[in-house]
Amino acid sequence: MPKALGIANGEQWAYKTRVARGPLAPVLILNASPPYESSIMVRRLDTGEQFWTHRARLPCLWEEREAWYETHPQFRGGTEFLPSPPDQDGPTRVPMTRLPITDIERIRKVVRSELEERLNIPRLALTIAELAAAMGVSDDQLYKHVRNGDLTPRYSGTRMVVPMDEAIRFINELPDEDLGPL
């Protein structure tokens, strides 16, 4: 059986649906196209819909989807589409849990703070958002101080961080009275 881009006719592959970060759907490869062409004719096994798609929308074989989900957890969620058993009409839907990105970020912060607390890892630097929250000012206010040269951040790649000693120096050098807008 000839293969195009590692895909052969008659195989079942997982298809990334058009839903942003939605679950995978099973498709049957109908026409794998000649090598070096990215368009592949498929039929969705849950809806029967037949269409051309790009190789990039087929991340893995259907039976390998659990391993793929482990490295791409953002796609696990919503409802996974499964082919209908012969005695049922329509697709079988298996509910799966999906956390909104804001909840995931909140969980990461909790885990990070728990690790820092348990391992007694001292903070060496703060992000602009963390320093702004600690000072009770806006991020924009601190970015103005960076542009004016009052606050000197360091960079880890493209991420701006303020070392603790610089943050303390900056706070200690703030005026004792309101001088108006920057």
Rank of each mutant, 00 (worst) to 15 (best):
P2W: 09
K3Y: 13
L5A: 09
L5C: 10
A8S: 08
E11L: 01
E11D: 07
Q12K: 12
Y15V: 01
V19M: 12
V19I: 15
R21V: 03
G22F: 01
P23K: 01
L24S: 00
V27W: 00
I29M: 09
N31I: 08
N31A: 14
A32G: 10
P35A: 09
Y36E: 15
E37K: 10
S38M: 10
V42G: 00
R44A: 05
D46C: 03
T47V: 03
E49L: 06
T53P: 01
T53C: 06
R55P: 03
A56D: 15
L58G: 06
R65V: 06
E66M: 10
H72G: 03
P73C: 02
F75N: 15
R76C: 12
R76N: 09
F81Q: 09
P85T: 13
P86T: 14
P86E: 15
D87E: 15
G90T: 09
G90K: 07
P91E: 10
P95D: 01
R98Y: 05
T102W: 11
T102I: 11
I104D: 03
E105T: 04
R106A: 11
I107D: 03
I107G: 05
V110N: 04
V110P: 00
S113G: 03
E116W: 05
E116N: 08
E117K: 14
R118T: 12
R118V: 13
N120W: 07
N120L: 14
N120Q: 13
P122R: 14
P122H: 12
A125M: 02
T127C: 02
I128K: 06
A133Y: 05
M135W: 09
L142H: 05
N148A: 14
D150G: 10
R154Q: 13
T158M: 12
V161H: 11
D165R: 11
F170S: 00
I171P: 05
E173W: 09
P175G: 01
D178S: 08
D178N: 12
L182D: 11
L182S: 10
